[in-house]
Amino acid sequence: MLEVSAIWTAQVQQQNYRALLDAISHPGWVKSILHQAGSPASTAVLATLLDAEVSLADPEGLLEAADWPLLQASTAAPEEADYILCMGSKAAQFQPRLGSLPSPEQSATLIICVDSLHEGELKISLEGPGVNGNADCAIAGLHPDWLSQREDWVCGYPLGVDLLLVDDSAVLALPRTTRVEVV
């Protein structure tokens, strides 16, 4: 009997999509992701967003081999991919797609696995669309180079990348419009 986790069902994906929409509408909010016990929440995020229409890069080999056929997404180099699955503890070794001036949406979305979105050594303060005043976050397991690299990627608005930081059970979004300050 083939057993498929609930993260591949329409009902769970609808709920996880709404969590992602809440997260990207409110940078700094930590939203719970429904996921399978023992499987990272990042897989549930990918299951919610990906299908055969888009490409995924997994330069660190974080995704279980068995999940690839379920995602249906094609593989691509990080420089070409629509979605990139990344490890937060290690700084990026690639240049993601930033989109173009007429089509800024043709840019990568980075799903970055971190240790915790609730507490951690990296304290940041956020400002920008979706943030009421400013929002303070503490993150564990995100290499500080990610933030300076992100600065380079998003400095030419509307070009940029959108980041989804995911720990073992939740997501926090940093869309390209968010101004991040380390405190």
Partner: peptide, 29 residues
């Protein structure tokens, strides 16, 4: 199907809406 649309159509709209929020005011095709 719940919601009339097939899941592929919903996923595309979901991906599109996330980019729309990330780039406020930009018309995502």
């Amino acid at each position: 199907q719940f919601g009339f649309l097939d899941e592929y159509a919903k996923k595309e709209i979901r991906r599109t809406s996330l980019k729309a929020v990330a780039i406020p005011g930009y018309q995502v095709p």
